[in-house]
Computed example of a mutant assay.
Amino acid sequence: MTIEQQVIEQLSQYRQKKARIQALSTYSVGAGITVSRLNEDDQLQELHRKLRGLPSYMYLSRFEQKLESVAHAYMTRYPAGVKAQKQAIPVQVMDPEDTELLKELRRKIQKVIEARGYEIRDNVEGIIERLTELQDLQADLERMDFILSTLEEYKPYAATLLRWIYVEGMELKELTEKLELSESTVRRRIRVAEREYANLAR
């Protein structure tokens, strides 16, 4: 199989990959959380990394700032993972108001634990495989869409023709009727459009 054939074979899988993304997105990992939500959480983690570089008063409410202060005052270590963080929070301290704040902090962390399904999730490897597959498929579709958009800039007819075939799934008969051209002419134009796409995708 030539490189051009390989590229067109990948493009021909566009609709199949999109369908697989939809199926993966709804896969439940427990506690009402889906694989697509976990994928969003990856992006939220990136945002969180950026926020950590800012002063907390810029993104925390006044009450959340109080929780942060009391945590800094009483926690001697900051372990990785929400379960370990919850265990590191003292249950009772000398100041009754601080004790209540620490209790609220543990409650908030428990909600995170429950929402993420850490207590019921037992198929971690399967979840990671599905999440990785979802991200790979999304990257494939993004690349194909980018190439089609690039092609559209200088060969709009070719890009439109390929979108009709590979993205919308139009059959040859539909194309000949839509374009009011003979089947042989449409086939020839498709081959030209595919070559243009393949040249960009190499």
Rank of each mutant, 00 (worst) to 15 (best):
I147M: 03
Y14I: 07
L148Q: 06
I33H: 10
E64C: 05
L175T: 06
A71D: 08
V167Q: 15
I147Q: 03
A84M: 03
A198Y: 03
E64D: 14
E68P: 00
L162K: 05
V29T: 15
L102C: 08
T185R: 15
A158M: 09
A80M: 01
T76K: 15
G32H: 11
V7F: 01
E153C: 09
R191I: 01
L67C: 03
L54M: 14
Q85N: 04
Q87L: 15
T160M: 07
Q65M: 15
D122I: 10
L181R: 15
Q16E: 13
R49C: 06
E168K: 06
I120N: 11
Y74L: 10
L47D: 05
R107I: 02
E114R: 07
V7Y: 01
K86Y: 07
I128L: 13
Q5M: 12
S61Y: 01
S69M: 03
N39Q: 11
L11S: 00
E183N: 12
Y118L: 14
S69L: 02
A84V: 00
L200N: 02
A19N: 10
G169I: 12
R49G: 03
S56L: 09
S28C: 06
G169L: 10
E183Q: 14
L51R: 05
Q13T: 12
I3A: 13
A31T: 03
A115C: 04
E177F: 01
E194T: 08
K111Y: 02
